[in-house]
């Protein structure tokens, strides 16, 4: 049997619903239909009354989750696409994210964001907006890159006492497969060394981990050993693991599918530059999507976001210094 990243997300939700009576799922078309991507397939049938269709009201969806969390429930909200979560933005960053700090009452909600580009998605079905959520205090932002992490991190997200924005990559949904679900996992907040190397550290997350790994394979043919760090969670950010890797390689490239301005890659470079300046023997670099809306046509789309080819090219520039 093989499981996809999407299966893992469905299984994690089934597991959470089975183990914890406080869990329920609320989102557009998540009920009998099973969700736009089928991440809740058959769950409404298996767990009657606990997997519910919502109206197209992202603000009220998140607001309802916060109220239910105050009452001790553990809601999972499915946004149909991450892009539409901006309509519920206020409730996430101002209501959910401030509740614990203001009142001492925790707000255990998980908001699932199917995010990232797939060819043909266009400007409003492709966005990577993890950085805007990470910007706000009080939110945990997760970006699993593997089937195993999709499963274990979603389970852990539901168990956490804080609002979690769970960024699940649409390109990985059916693309990634694993043999079985993990029984053990790295905890949230710990980055993973996805590939060891001595010449350059590439720090990345989500779908870009796979582009970076492909680039690393190609570069090893040219004699370079690239270390790839998979952040897993962008907030909290595992600065220790990043710093330790940069200490080994002396060189840093950060890769993100999101826009560059004020994003996750900028944050990592800022931290490494200020805390790890002496570890660097080349200027740290980053590679992001271009600073335009995400284009629809595949010719433009593949040039808009980083790919294994552009990651390898950016890496070579640093390595040749």
């Amino acid at each position: 049997m093989s499981l996809t990243y999407l299966d893992a997300i469905r299984e994690a939700q089934a597991h959470a619903l089975r183990d914890d009576p406080r869990v329920f799922i609320y989102g557009q078309d998540v009920g009998d239909f099973g969700g736009a991507f089928k991440a809740t397939k058959n769950l409404a049938k298996e767990f009657p009354g606990r997997v519910l269709d919502s109206p197209i009201s992202e603000d009220a969806m998140v607001g309802l989750a916060v109220g239910a969390a105050i009452e001790g429930m553990r809601p999972i909200i499915e946004m149909q696409f991450a892009d539409f979560s901006t309509v519920g933005f206020n409730q996430i960053v101002n209501q959910a994210a401030t509740l614990f700090w203001r009142t001492g009452v925790s707000c255990p909600i998980t908001v699932r964001l199917p995010f990232g580009g797939t060819s043909g998605g266009g400007p409003f079905h492709s966005q990577c907006i993890e950085a805007i959520y990470a910007h706000y205090p009080g939110v945990i932002v997760l970006t699993p890159a593997t089937v195993e992490d999709a499963y274990s991190m979603l389970l852990e997200a539901v168990a956490l006492d804080d609002p979690v924005v769970f960024c699940e990559h649409k390109f990985l949904y059916r693309h990634l497969k694993a043999e079985k679900l993990p029984s053990e996992a790295l905890p949230i907040g710990k980055a993973r060394i996805a590939r060891e190397g001595r010449d350059l550290t590439v720090v990345t997350y989500s779908a870009m981990v796979h582009e970076a790994l492909e680039a690393a394979t190609e570069l090893s043919g040219e004699g370079w050993e690239i270390e790839v760090v998979d952040l897993r969670s962008v907030k909290p950010l595992d600065t220790d693991t990043i710093m330790a890797s940069v200490a080994r390689t002396g060189k840093l490239l950060c890769v993100g599918e999101a826009w560059p301005w004020g994003g996750v890659t900028a944050e990592i470079i800022a931290r490494v530059a200020s805390e790890g300046y002496g570890l660097l023997d080349a200027a740290p670099q980053r590679l992001n999507a271009k600073d335009t809306p995400v284009p629809y046509h595949p010719n433009l789309w593949t040039a808009h976001r980083p790919t294994a080819v552009s990651v390898a090219e950016a890496a070579r520039k640093i390595l040749r210094q």
Binding site: F24, G49, R50, S57, D59, A60, M61, V62, G63, L64, A65, V66, G67, A68, A69, I70, E71, G72, M73, P75, N90, Q91, N94, Q95, T98, L99, R102, T103, V105
Partner: peptide, 30 residues
Amino acid sequence: RPRDGLLPMISHLGAMISVVNGMLFAHRLK
């Protein structure tokens, strides 16, 4: 005091209504 059913408003007008909905919805589930 949210635990006593008294919600601390955030400034954003209209934002508390769906939170009340959520608490009532939770009552139903419970």
